[in-house]
Amino acid sequence: MPEYLIYFNQSWVGDHTQEWFRSRVAPSTAVVEEMKQAGVYVFAAGVEENGPIYTADPTQGEEVAVTDGAYVDQPDHLGGFAIVRVDDDEAAKYWAAKVAEGCGWPQEVRRVW
């Protein structure tokens, strides 16, 4: 059964109040629970926005260079993701829509191979 990555960039979230974000906790948590109950859940997580970032780059010499900071400083960065194991693209799109509705911002979905 194929696996799909459902994800969003932090810039897609938009500017909202803390109250609005708190209002998204219950519906987004409910979607995760629904995925678990349906047997499609593999993993889901948000990415720390202000946490440490490291880059591992094998193109800078004979050894892999591991440095502090993003590989490319850009406004778009991964905000969170879920991995689901479902039968087909239609099921993946269904769960992406549920996640988008629960979170309140757009999601992309791609097959993992």
Rank of each mutant, 00 (worst) to 15 (best):
V112E: 03
G80M: 09
V72R: 07
A30S: 09
Y41L: 04
A45T: 08
M1W: 01
Y71I: 13
Q107H: 13
T17V: 06
D15N: 12
P2S: 07
E101G: 12
V66F: 03
A30E: 12
V47R: 03
P58Q: 05
F43N: 00
G104I: 00
Y4K: 02
Y4E: 05
V64D: 01
V72Y: 06
A97T: 13
G79Q: 10
K36G: 05
K93Q: 12
D87P: 13
F21A: 13
P58E: 05
G61C: 14
P106A: 07
H77V: 11
R110T: 01
N9I: 03
V13G: 02
E101W: 10
D73M: 15
F81S: 09
P75G: 10
V42F: 00
T17Y: 06
G102L: 06
Y41H: 13
Y7E: 09
I53C: 10
E49Y: 05
S28R: 06
G39N: 06
T29P: 01
D15T: 11
V99K: 00
A65R: 14
A38M: 06
V84G: 10
E62L: 11
K98Q: 15
P58H: 01
A26W: 02
T59I: 05
Y41K: 05
V42Q: 02
T67P: 13
A65E: 14
G39V: 09
F43Y: 06
C103Y: 10
Q37T: 14
D87V: 05
R85G: 10
F43P: 00
V109Y: 09
D87A: 15
Y41N: 05
D68Y: 12
Y54C: 06
E63Y: 09
A45M: 09
G51V: 08
L78S: 12
F43L: 12
T55H: 10
F8L: 08
A30K: 11
W113M: 00
G61T: 14
E63L: 14
C103N: 11
A70Q: 15
W12R: 04
D76V: 12
A82I: 12
W20Q: 06
V13N: 05
